[in-house]
Write a protein that binds this DNA or RNA. Sequence first.
DNA 1: ATGAAACGGTACTGTTTAGTTTACTTAGAA
DNA 2: TTCTAAGTAAACTAAACAGTACCGTTTCAT
Lengths: 212, 212
Amino acid sequence: MVTVSEEPGPRARAKRDQILAGARRVFLRDGFAAASTDAIAAEAKVSKRTLYVYYPSKEDLFVDVLRKLTIENPQTRALESMEGISPENREELRRDLFELAQKIVTTMMQPDYLALLRTTIADIHRFPQLSGLFRATVPERAMSSFALFIERTRERGMIREDVDGEAAARMFVGPLLTYAVLDGLFVAGGPPRKPAPGRIEEIVDMYVKAIT
Amino acid sequence: MVTVSEEPGPRARAKRDQILAGARRVFLRDGFAAASTDAIAAEAKVSKRTLYVYYPSKEDLFVDVLRKLTIENPQTRALESMEGISPENREELRRDLFELAQKIVTTMMQPDYLALLRTTIADIHRFPQLSGLFRATVPERAMSSFALFIERTRERGMIREDVDGEAAARMFVGPLLTYAVLDGLFVAGGPPRKPAPGRIEEIVDMYVKAIT
DNA sequence: ATGAAACGGTACTGTTTAGTTTACTTAGAA
DNA sequence: TTCTAAGTAAACTAAACAGTACCGTTTCAT
């Protein structure tokens, strides 16, 4: 029998996922430099030998973990959920944007998502190949998706003529980003402090006044 | 002769500054875990023995470096520069905010400042004592300083009655923060991409429309 | 000038780390 | 059952690391 292209069978894929799950927990908790392969093997309940059968080095494993986390990113999907939305009046626009803002903040403030941001920011200069992937997959896709929504809605006459899509996107995401950064990434332990109730609504109200 | 309280003397302080300067460069470049005391001693042009005379451990040195960088932070001063500003009309308000926005973006996009943000975010969970210091010194002071400016200006009748100070501060800083995060911290090497000319002005225009 | 304190250079110690080797065990298909 | 591929556990290697010891040299106040 001649195996042409080494298909990775279901068993091998299960082990690989097991390794990835353990590595994800350790890398997101400790960062690249402080994470040890011993800790990863223990966390994944896999022998160190097996780990090195599936990945040639700690660097490769790290890149694969962050690559997968980036690609299956829920943050992007949140902003892409505006693609099918077409508010008919100002009140609908306000409500749609409010729901989106809540979705964004909720997603960004999850401990796992904050840990991904933290680890990416911390080690991106050591793995430049992640920079392009992350930027193209998360912020750029999200921003341009939202910018498209703005321009589409503007063409339907519900937003001021002189509002630029990119500026409007930064104006919308920015205030929400302050929560993730100032109250998420800059907080040491425990859960991040969620925004005060009503704050998001207030911000969306100001935003709608700015663009209409 | 009895020395009561170990004055540090000018020579000792010079050596300490020399050590701090070298440690700052290495820590901001490599982060805590990947920075080696050998590299720090070499960068500071100081023997390792001397380094350990002034600091008992790598942790203590790291905390002192970040503590000093945080305290003498230029970002806070930028926002505090609004304390003496009292615009007389909407056009003056617009121009004052535009100057402030430019100052903030310019300061935040400096490589050294981005490195401070990066290192703080990366290692804050290992040095919780830095969290409170950093938050209180940089974002909270800056935000409340700006919030005070907004409320003061609102009382002088130039801003809508229902605009809250904190929400207005997040609304102003947020869009500028997107540049520091998306185009600064998420970029691998080289200088960060500066915002397109006119973008800041556009954002400030939208902001003024939102709060007046 | 001289003596003491501070400093530099370098080798050292004990520990941790990435990655390897070896000897043994398990799981599943024929 | 039996053979084979895959996995485990633990010891191991070589390098890097934080921190220390030693000794010769510089600095500076008296």
